[in-house]
């Protein structure tokens, strides 16, 4: 019911007394109101709905999901034909990507 898209906070500023941020969505930048995520820092990701940031993306939890996927795919790839190898690499890259970003 509520379209909300993840983006990265690249700048925090004040406008008309409100905490606002510039949010980068893979190159397209738009402003969002950050009043509900007072703790957010530049470089962190958030989900934005109708111009408002809803929550700070929890990178630790995201990495945990990637690890769970890794396990799932690893179990599958033990059947041993190598068809999941690329997949595993992609997931490992994702994990590293999150960790590097900190």
């Amino acid at each position: 019911m509520c379209l909300a898209v993840p983006g990265k906070v690249i700048e925090i500023f004040e406008e008309a007394g409100l905490k606002m941020g510039r949010i980068d969505y893979a190159g397209t930048v738009n402003n969002a109101c950050l009043e509900y995520v007072p703790e957010i820092q530049v470089g962190q990701y958030t989900v934005v709905h109708a111009g408002f940031a809803l929550s700070v993306i929890n990178e630790e939890e995201a990495v945990k999901s990637y690890e769970a996927w890794e396990e799932l795919i690893e179990t599958a790839s033990q059947s041993g034909d190598g068809r999941y190898d690329d997949q595993l690499q992609t997931i490992r890259d994702l994990k590293e990507n999150v960790e590097d970003d900190d």
Partner: peptide, 13 residues
Amino acid sequence: ISPDVKGACEILG
């Protein structure tokens, strides 16, 4: 599709 265009499409649904 360019990533910027994709991003803008995602935001606006």
